[in-house]
Amino acid sequence: MTIGIDQRAARGAPTSIDGVGIRFGSYQAVSGISLDIAAGEFLCLLGPSGCGKSTLLSALAGFTPVTSGTITVDQDVIDGPSPERGMVFQSSDALFDWLTVRQNVAFGPRMRGLSRKEQAALADEYIGLVGLRKFADRFPGQLSGGMRQRVQIARVLANRPRIVLMDEPFGALDAQTRQVMQMEMDRIWRESGCTVVFVTHDIDEAIILADRIAVMTAGPAASIKNIYRVDLPRPREETSPEAIALHQMLRRDIGAEVRAALRDQGLDQVFEAGEEY
Results as ranks from 00 to 15, higher is better:
Gln152Pro: 05
Gly193Ser: 03
Gln176Leu: 15
Leu173Tyr: 14
Ile188His: 04
Arg190Cys: 08
Val156Thr: 10
Asp124Trp: 07
Leu143Arg: 07
Ala218Cys: 11
Asp124His: 07
Ala206Val: 01
Pro169Ala: 10
Asp124Ser: 09
Arg178Glu: 13
Asp202Asn: 15
Phe170His: 15
Arg178Ser: 12
Met183Gln: 03
Gly128Leu: 12
Ala154Gln: 01
Asp211Gly: 04
Ile227Met: 08
Glu184Gly: 00
Arg234Gln: 09
Asp174Cys: 14
Leu173Arg: 09
Asp202His: 14
Pro235Cys: 05
Leu129Thr: 08
Leu122Asp: 11
Leu173Lys: 10
Leu122Trp: 03
Val230Lys: 02
Lys134Asp: 15
Ala136Cys: 00
Asn159Glu: 10
Asp211Trp: 02
Glu168Leu: 05
Val156Cys: 06
Leu143His: 08
Asp204Lys: 15
Arg150Phe: 04
Ser144Ala: 11
Leu143Val: 07
Gly219Glu: 11
Thr177Ser: 14
Asn226Pro: 04
Ala210Tyr: 11
Pro169Glu: 02
Ala158Leu: 06
Gln182Ile: 03
Asp231Leu: 02
Thr200Lys: 03
Val230Gln: 04
Ala172Gly: 13
Ile127Ser: 01
Leu132Glu: 05
Gln176Lys: 11
Gln152Thr: 13
Ile127Asn: 03
Val196Leu: 05
Gln182Gly: 15
Arg150His: 05
Thr200Tyr: 07
Glu191Met: 13
Leu157Pro: 12
Ala218Ile: 02
Asp124Pro: 05
Cys194Ser: 15
Ile227Asn: 13
Phe170Ala: 15
Asp204Ser: 14
Ser192Cys: 13
Gln142Tyr: 09
Asp174Gln: 15
Arg155Pro: 08
Ile224Met: 09
